[in-house]
Nucleic acid binder design. Structure first.
Lengths: 132, 132
DNA sequence: TTGATTTATTCAAAAAATTGAATATAATGT
DNA sequence: ACATTATATTCAATTTTTTGAATAAATCAA
């Protein structure tokens, strides 16, 4: 397989050429997230998220870390985000407005539970709050 | 057609996901070049170069300017080169070593002839120098 | 107009990406 | 061991990209 600089650059861009994968990277902008979180945040089916994560993982743009049942993904090199920033500037994007902030989602993974738990007493308690 | 920021970014990356197109952009790094020049520099068939130029042109990454028989292409926004630079840094590239400097090629277009003509008397004179 | 030169387009076959559906794997609790 | 939950992989149909071959279009000179 050819592997000169241009070929590797092309492969990198090839990995980034998909809106769902860009959305995932944006979701990981502020740190690692578990798959269920990405699923809820982006509104894709689980298998679909895993497929796209696999593409990003094989390209070594993200790396995974298992914690019990959950797998957390994070970006390997922050320069990847610079690439996205430059691209967004080029196409005249509206900041990161398209993707919700990674925390604004009702995911029940331990991490999200911890973050929601500002007043609750138990981590395992299901969220029974009524929107009012 | 969807046209949010992520989709537009993805389209940009899609345009950049090909080594030949990256090579063309690198060749245009130091200013406009005619098609015959790119052809000689990159060693691709003429039709192939035109095809890839068309892709870049439709994505508005380059713009063309006709001058007689020749068509000169140039990069529309210098930020595109930043994108390439960041990508190369990410994949651990060897600077721009893969693509020859755009002027080191025996193209007979008016521009190249002018550049070769440091001592010659005629623009139309073919280069008869012997490497010694 | 004819011919030469430069560049662009069209078409089709092959290769690769996309995506849904089904299924597999891994970790945990009972 | 079995069930449950979270995540991953495989497979196949569809769509898109790639690339060569042929041809068209534009410009200029005679």
């Amino acid at each position: 397989m050819k592997d000169d600089s241009l070929t590797r650059q092309a492969r990198l861009f090839r990995t980034l050429m998909h809106p769902a994968r860009l959305a995932i990277l944006e979701a990981l902008r502020n740190g690692e997230q578990c798959v269920c979180h990405l699923e809820a945040l982006l509104g894709y089916r689980q298998a679909y998220v895993s497929q796209q994560l696999a593409v990003l993982r094989k390209a070594q743009l993200i790396i995974d870390r298992r914690d019990g049942l959950n797998v957390f993904y994070r970006i390997t090199q922050p320069e990847i985000l610079s690439l996205l920033d430059t691209a967004r500037a080029l196409v005249g994007g509206t900041e990161c407005a398209d993707v919700h902030t990674a925390t604004e989602v009702d995911c029940l993974c331990p991490k999200c539970a911890r973050e929601h738990m500002t007043c609750s007493t138990s981590v395992h308690q299901v969220d029974h709050r009524v929107a009012e």
